[in-house]
Computed example of a mutant assay.
Amino acid sequence: MGDVLNEFRTHAGAESFAAIRRNLGETLIALDFDGVLAPIVDDPAAARAHPEAAAVLARLSPLVGAVVIITGRPAGLAVEHGGFAAVEGLTVLGHYGRERWEAGVLTTPEPPAGVAEVREKLPRVLEAAKAPAGTHIEDKGHALAVHTRRAAEPEVALERLRSILGALAEHAGLVVEPGRFVLELRPPGMDKGIALRGIVAEKKAGAVLYAGDDLGDLAAYDAVDALRAEGMPGVKVCSGSAEVTALAERADLVVDGPDGVVRLLADLAAG
């Protein structure tokens, strides 16, 4: 990537990245999956990691304190779709940290009853709301996501459904997590910021770099900001797109989608 420090949008981010380079072995590298390690596609089931992602994570893992993927997807699915099963030292936190995959072992709690209630009611709710053609449901096991990317006017469709799905989620004791043409109904009490702070403490990291692409990653950005305020070097990377600008506005460094993320990780692994 050339001199990556010249590409930083913030002085604090550039300083933190320089500190990470000096102390790579103490750094926790945390990454979202969709939009960061895998390109966004119309059908979430068809998402696959960048062809070089697994190899670069395998090179980077022994050089850093920890490599962690924090995703709204089921942890096992992220491992499968990423081709990450052979990446030694990798931790995958799925469902915003409710699930954990590590060294081939998946730990997952039972989903709350509200998820089953929403699973049963959601198709009828969408039908009654006259959801536009192209709207579809993704069943994540511990959460249900409604995607409008395939609709003729995806943003209009999303706004049309927002309050309806919010009411359904509230009745079932769930919360709504907005994203790139998606509204996810999931259990409360966990987000990527909580998951990130927990794994940073567990791994006793001395620095952190987080890369995200969507609104759900703002909580992780908040966590990086808080850790930086406490004196820990921290870098917020945005896997850039034209669909979500809120993250880019908060980022220290914006890269060109998964290609840019992989190049950044390769740059770190090269020393």
Rank of each mutant, 00 (worst) to 15 (best):
D213K: 06
G216P: 14
G189D: 10
V36I: 12
R9P: 05
C238S: 04
V4T: 15
L215C: 08
V79W: 03
A12G: 08
L57E: 11
A131C: 03
G173R: 11
L209Q: 08
P62C: 14
D225A: 07
I199W: 00
P178A: 13
G189S: 05
G206H: 08
A145V: 11
E110W: 13
G72E: 04
V4D: 09
A242V: 05
L106K: 00
H147G: 05
A116S: 14
D213R: 07
T10V: 13
V41R: 10
A246R: 00
A211I: 12
E202I: 12
V56A: 14
E177K: 15
L215I: 15
D222Y: 03
V224I: 10
E184P: 07
D256F: 01
V208M: 02
G76F: 00
G271V: 04
D267R: 09
V255E: 02
A58L: 10
N23Y: 15
V68L: 11
F181D: 07
Y210N: 00
L218Q: 06
D256A: 09
A12L: 13
D139H: 06
L24W: 12
A220Y: 02
V118Y: 01
L60T: 11
R197M: 13
L168E: 09
E102M: 13
D259W: 00
G212I: 09
L90Y: 03
R48F: 14
H142S: 07
Y221C: 04
G231I: 09
R124D: 10
T10L: 11
P109S: 02
H81A: 05
P51I: 13
G193S: 14
A54I: 04
A46M: 08
R228Y: 04
G13I: 06
G89D: 07
G134Q: 08
H171E: 13
A58H: 09
R73H: 08
P111V: 06
D139V: 03
A55I: 01
I137Y: 04
D214G: 01
V208C: 07
R21D: 13
S61Q: 01
H95T: 15
G198C: 13
R149Y: 11
L247Q: 04
A270R: 06
G35R: 07
A113C: 05
A78I: 01
A47E: 15
G25P: 10
R228T: 02
A58M: 13
D256N: 02
V156D: 03
G141T: 00
L24Y: 07
L31M: 05
A195M: 10
K203N: 05
R149Q: 06
A12V: 10
L63K: 12
A18Y: 12
L253R: 06
T245C: 05
A195F: 05
I40P: 07
S16D: 06
G231D: 08
G234P: 04
A157R: 02
P44F: 14
K204E: 12
A78V: 07
A113T: 10
E249Q: 14
K121T: 00
K236Q: 02
P62W: 12
Y96W: 10
M232A: 02
G76P: 15
H81P: 08
K121V: 02
G114W: 00
L57N: 12
L57P: 01
E155K: 15
L77K: 09
P112D: 09
G231P: 05
L77V: 15
I199M: 09
L264W: 01
H142D: 07
V182W: 01
A131D: 04
H81M: 03
D217P: 15
I164L: 14
P178D: 10
T245S: 09
K130W: 07
